[in-house]
Design a protein around this nucleic acid. Structure first.
Lengths: 356, 356
DNA sequence: AGATTTTTCTATATCGATTTAGTTTAGTGA
DNA sequence: TCACTAAACTAAATCGATATAGAAAAATCT
């Protein structure tokens, strides 16, 4: 027996009559709840509640309303919803405009956008410039309520943005972990594994002294790479030199010059580990200018988001970071943080497989 | 004499008294016009009109209202404005998720975002998938009114998106021209000049038979490149072969295979022109696999958004396309299309300077 | 002086959706 | 049969900003 047949003491529900008039009054006018109200003869709030499947609306009524809504192509007005409920249906991707980040970021954007297809959420970009306070865009979004959730990257261990958002209970997901990783949503590439694999594979090729061109130490993942590399170096009995004065984010020229200096200062270096594509290209420039032969008397191990480096030099040893996976995960994590704030936050680690 | 002193027959304006109470009632509550209304003793519409500098509000009143607004950090609620006026303060960048997302688009995004800083406009991304109708996202934005203007690229001569938007009078700006270029806002790289310079520079190096790896013919700029190249080829007396079966957008593998076939089929080819970075890299792969020596018995001329190719192979002849300039221009063009629909649309051409 | 004009402000309605507090109707129990 | 309850609605208020119409006060004109 259908639940809707059990009517015990009830007001007569509306009869499922024919829709009187489908043609909208003004052709250029978008349908609203009022349009459906007029067409169905029901009050506007009834229509609203019917569409949101509220328990105090009759089954036949819901069916009628949904049919009309479908036929006239009703889509809720976002400004109306936002004004009344505060829900924006917007997820903001906050990103640095630093160019180094950009090819990575472009992939992230497209995968985030893809994951939000079919959901009511839109993706907006809130850029900030490396020269200004990273807190600024975050505060702006939270204070103006211009998004339901935030996604951002370049996390630091004691990231002030994360602290701020957790304190306020504002939904967010990060690309990269923090000291409070157990308490918020994140997705991360397993950079510890990257560091470990890099050292192991280089050691397996007989390299004994590795130059590690890591990210700036402020970033959480720099620690991961260094940690993984050190562990593996101990195990394999190889030596590691961490760069000082330049990092994988320093820009091509700085890395090239820095690496050249490092290689000249210590000719025993026979392997390089790079955490970014552009740093890897700069290092190739450096080692070739020092007269070293890649794959012969020195090896280079690098991480990349796009299969590019092996077109550049087939000898480079590479590990792929699947940014598309990150985007898809972060979109889901952000939506869950919005809709189910009490559930444990989604967390995901992309563990690279060593194909070497 | 101050204009505000000329009071000829007027209602007594409000006295510029001290603000009675600055503390907002509930600390977590964002200030609205109502807050300013309460603090100033003025009606809400008066406050609104004062802030928008309406002519029927007294100078002292405006000063008072602005001061309070500043002190309590008033920011207009976007949903309120949007609901009432229909203005979204949003500009949508519509882009394909497939294309050459890596360099080009990423730069475009960051420069667009930069140009919109300090304006009330936000940038949202509306991606579409190559498999689906390019009209779909456009129609969605226009019909749901989710942006005030659109920006998109990959224009075709008789672009249906442009036709649709012009017909409806919806503000937009394109990266790339169309048949109706005189009637809408656009920014374009002068690809005719690119084609011309490429041929001339290759001819100057003694190359006599050039392979042109152009974009898909559907795109407007493909015609420009081909046109420029043909003209210059006539003038210089060199031969041009346009690729068939593959274009600069076909993907690295397809370009590599195609170019290999072309070079094998016609060994007289001693120069290649590429309109994209990835195609250029693929062509290098092809020519090297044919045993040709870049810069010695064959030359390659390519366009790139980021100085990358000369790290890859210093012998590649390159011309730079300044995408940042495009982003900045398109942002301004879109804003003008919104605010001054009757002014002639902004149009800009980036003419490359030949440094060869 | 009285009517008119000007300036400056207020009252009210509105955009679209949703929440809260009723109201109607039909069936139930005594 | 009559109060009582449950179900299924409707009415009114609200979110924040703004457009429109109208009202109050001061200066000007006749």
């Amino acid at each position: 027996m259908d639940k809707s047949d059990v009517v015990t003491g009830a007001r007569k529900p509306v009869t499922l009559r024919q829709v009187p008039d489908i043609t909208p009054e003004l052709p250029g006018t978008k349908p609203t709840l009022k349009t459906i109200s007029r067409l169905s003869g029901l009050a506007v709030p009834t229509v609203s509640r019917a569409l949101s499947d509220a328990p105090d609306i009759g089954a036949e009524t819901k069916k009628l309303v949904r049919r009309i809504a479908n036929e006239i192509g009703y889509v809720p007005n976002r400004a109306g919803v936002r004004l009344r409920t505060g829900r924006t249906n917007v997820i903001s991707l906050v990103l640095s405009t630093e160019h180094d980040m950009m090819n990575h970021t472009a992939r992230l954007i497209s995968s985030l956008a893809g994951a939000l297809r079919g959901t009511p959420y839109h993706l907006i970009m809130t850029p900030y410039f490396p020269s200004e306070d990273p807190m600024k865009p975050i505060r702006y979004i939270v204070e103006t309520g211009s998004a339901d959730a935030l996604i951002f990257n370049q996390t630091q261990p004691d990231d002030s943005r994360v602290a701020y958002l957790m304190e306020r209970g504002f939904p967010f997901a990060t690309h990269g972990r923090t000291n409070w990783a157990d308490r918020h949503a994140w997705f991360d590439y397993d950079n510890t594994a990257f560091g470990r694999i890099a050292v192991r594979d280089l050691a397996a090729r007989g390299r004994r002294h590795l130059l590690l061109v890591a990210p700036p130490t402020a970033q959480t993942y720099a620690g991961h790479i260094v940690g993984g590399a050190r562990d593996a170096a101990l195990a394999a009995g190889v030596r590691i030199t961490e760069t000082t004065g330049y990092s994988s984010d320093s820009g091509s020229d700085a890395v090239r010059d820095g690496a050249t200096a490092s290689l000249t200062a210590d000719p025993s270096i026979d392997g390089i580990i790079c955490s970014s594509t552009s740093a890897a290209m700069a290092c190739v420039g450096a080692l070739e200018s020092c007269g070293r032969k890649l794959g012969v008397d020195i090896d280079l191990f690098a991480k990349e988001a796009i299969p590019f480096l092996n077109l550049f030099r087939p000898q480079i040893m590479t590990l792929k970071e699947d940014v598309a996976q990150a985007g898809e995960f972060l979109a889901r994590a952000a939506m869950q943080a919005i809709r189910e704030p009490d559930l444990p936050p989604l967390q995901g680690l992309d563990v690279p497989r060593d194909l070497g």
